[in-house]
Design a protein around this nucleic acid. Structure first.
Length: 300
RNA sequence: GGUGCCAUAGCUCAGUUGGUAGAGCAACGGACUGAAAAUCCGUGUGUCCCUGGUUCGAUUCCAGGUGGCACCA
């Protein structure tokens, strides 16, 4: 029997958690989360971690397993999740992956190239260089070090240029030399399913969910991690807006409004990403029967 | 009931001395390889309330209607 990973994804707030549980229960298997923020144990309300009952219904992996203090990233996730999948596939043929983190899903399904983690000191130095001398200065440096990547990189995007530079500098080899542009093959087949609804309904769901998060104590949760607000793991919708409020930069009402807006924008970005993936089949969150039927047809 | 003011993008509004219109916010589209809930790029999406009139031409001027607001009854 071939091993199969069922990937369930879609925009934030669409209802992946409950659909994922139903699929996992139907196939009598476990869930591997592909959510880059639910992975942090310090975060709960704002990341919409599955609740007690949901976690009891099906065994979940990568939920609140790491700390915001770790420098977690898509590559580490690829390594850890792949190792876990290997274990799970020893005793079962189907595993369900549930989550909306686009790059994390791609890391599992397509793989990302091997290269070292960025050296924090080099990154800090490049950030300072950006502040002091501007983006053009970094661009010129990249043009010298890695003319090939310079040709294709988004020259207006500081994050991309800094990353290419930090890898090139710390390894002594151009960043582009690490990029294979190849899809890795996996020892399992993959079925990709994405959930979506009419945009207006999705927005209603998101807005309602944010209101509920606020009611159940999101502000206090954000306050508890406020001392560590500089961490990348907290550069996250639902937290950064509270930090701005705590800093006195915006009102509480404005913070809540921005969480809603930024969640909507994040959802749109996810939809854009998944839309270009022709392996993805789309369903409404209510179409459980159709989803199961589709999976079974694919398994045959 | 009377008088006055208002009616333009999803919202708040600007504007056109008459030549079919533009800001902010919201929204929408896209890029994406160790920060990815990150980072970056792009796009006005419109019966200018309705019906007549004047005019070569009306969102703009005039009349009536409808709706809203304010004041007077």
């Amino acid at each position: 029997m071939p091993k199969t990973l069922i990937v369930l994804t879609g925009p934030t707030g669409i209802g992946k958690t409950s659909v994922g549980i139903k699929i996992a229960q139907y196939f009598n298997t476990e869930i591997v989360s592909s959510d880059s923020r639910q992975i942090f144990k310090e975060l709960n309300i704002g990341t919409a971690v599955p609740d007690k009952h949901e976690l009891a219904a099906v065994k979940h992996h990568f939920i609140q397993t790491h700390s915001i203090n770790e420098n977690y990233n898509a590559s580490r996730y690829e390594t850890e999740a792949l190792a876990l999948l290997e274990e799970l596939f020893k005793t079962r043929d189907i595993v369900v992956m549930v989550g909306g983190s686009m790059l994390y899903i791609d890391a599992i399904c397509k793989g990302i190239d091997i290269m070292p983690d960025a050296d924090p000191e080099i990154r800090a130095a490049l950030k300072k260089q950006l502040e002091d001398n501007g983006l053009e200065d970094l661009r010129l440096q990249l043009k010298t070090i890695d003319p090939e990547y310079y040709k294709t990189v988004d020259l207006k995007n500081p994050a991309r240029i800094i990353h290419a530079l930090e890898i090139s500098i710390q390894t002594g080899k151009p960043y582009s030399s690490f990029r294979s542009n190849q899809t890795k093959t996996r020892p399992f087949s993959i079925i990709k399913i994405a959930l979506n609804s009419e945009r207006e309904i999705l927005h209603q769901r998101i807005n309602l969910r944010v209101d509920q998060m606020v009611k159940t104590g999101l502000e206090e949760e954000a306050r508890s991690v406020y001392p560590k607000k500089h961490l990348n793991s907290l550069n996250t919708v639902g937290y950064r807006e509270w930090f701005a409020y705590f800093n006195g930069e915006i009102t509480r009402e404005k913070a809540i409004e921005l969480i809603k807006r930024n969640s909507r924008r994040y959802a749109r970005k996810q939809i854009t990403w998944f839309r270009k993936d022709d392996k993805v089949s789309w369903f409404e969150p209510s179409q459980i029967k159709e989803i199961i039927g589709y999976i079974e047809a694919q398994l045959r």
